[in-house]
Simulated scan of single mutants.
Amino acid sequence: MQNALFVGVSSQVALQRELDVIANNMANMSTNGFKSRTSRFQEYLMPVASADSFSAPDRRLSYVIDQGTTLNLGQGPVEQTGNPLDVAVKGSAFIAVRAQGGAERYTRNGALSVDARGQLVTSDGYPVMGEGGPITVNPQETGLAIGPDGTVSTNLGIRGRIKLVTFANPNALINDGGNLYSSTSPARPAGLDGRLEPGALERSNVSPVLEMTRLMDVNRTYTMVSSVISRMDDLRGTAISRLANVA
């Protein structure tokens, strides 16, 4: 009976984790370049008891183990904006930016602009990295444009090239806040694996219908598991009460 309660609690913990992932996906349905995540779980079978005095063999107990999440790198819808500084990232590439403290981070947010210091930045204010550092332009320059290969040019010529990178193992990417990712594996030049579409933005690849369906499934399963735990707890209380009344 106690084991059944433990199994139920492990299921509830896993369902709560999945609910958090779904909530985060839904909260970022309108975030430029956001990539949804899916929970991963693994079955854990408890070892069978070694005693052989039972009339029937022990049954293995199956628990749920949280194995983290998988990043969905599917292309989000591309929306034309007409803004020459908006770029939709195509393929598996990410834009390298400089985060707080100077660390390099990665994003799919292609809503770019020029800040007061002349730096090309994302809509979140992170400087976009070029091959030699952050890309800057002078106030007197005009005709700022971004090419499909990431080349940034003005009326005075080429000012830099946006650093596009990919990863051998995209699932090593870790959400780092502010629509940024860090990685436990080194980044490599995107090459042909990444291009930009100027004058457009990649929207979130979250599917509202899919997430709502998952949300309903999780809530239904959580309610069912809670009901089972409640009945098992009532059964245990009844058993204790009856055993206490045995003369």
Rank of each mutant, 00 (worst) to 15 (best):
D124L: 14
R98K: 13
P47R: 02
I229H: 05
T223E: 15
S182I: 13
Y63P: 06
I95D: 06
S204H: 04
E131H: 04
G110I: 12
D20F: 00
F167W: 00
V114T: 08
V165A: 04
G74T: 13
M129F: 00
N155G: 15
M129S: 11
D217K: 12
T184D: 09
I135L: 01
R195N: 09
Q140F: 12
S55P: 10
T151H: 06
A244S: 12
Y44M: 14
R108E: 09
F6T: 11
D233P: 08
N25T: 03
E104S: 13
P134R: 03
G177H: 08
S92H: 04
T107N: 02
V225E: 11
K35L: 03
E104K: 08
I135F: 06
G177C: 07
N171Y: 05
G157Y: 05
D115A: 03
N24A: 03
R231W: 00
N72G: 00
S10M: 08
F6L: 14
V64A: 13
G191A: 00
S241T: 10
V152K: 06
D86I: 09
N179F: 02
Y126G: 02
Q100H: 09
I240E: 13
R17L: 05
R40S: 15
S62H: 08
A23T: 12
M129K: 02
R161E: 01
A187C: 01
A93K: 02
L61D: 15
Q16A: 15
V152D: 01
I162S: 11
D193K: 10
T184A: 09
S11V: 06
A14R: 07
R161G: 01
Y222Q: 05
N245E: 15
S230R: 15
